[in-house]
Amino acid sequence: MIKVLFFAELEEIVGSRELTIEKAELTVNEVKEYLKDKFPTLPVDRAMIAVNEEYVEDTDVVKSDDIVALVPPVSGG
């Protein structure tokens, strides 16, 4: 089970702060494809992806109990 977090406008589009994917292992790219399929209006490709609070590449692997976060362009400061 992989947990996915959404923030800011992504949270509003999904309607929730988090969801779970019932898979034991996926690549980051597969997670993105899953989300695009489930939420066609979600701007997945504009977001950076973090796994367990570190930014990752599309080819990295996500395992069960990992926490994936979609990080849309930031605007702090």
Partner: peptide, 24 residues
């Protein structure tokens, strides 16, 4: 650097609307 890598987001509220800002 905060404006590049720190996951914080700002939502502007105007008189006629609101919007999450990004990629400043």
């Amino acid at each position: 650097r905060i404006k590049e890598i720190v996951p914080i987001w700002k939502k502007e509220h105007w008189e006629d609307g609101e919007k999450w800002m990004g990629d400043q």
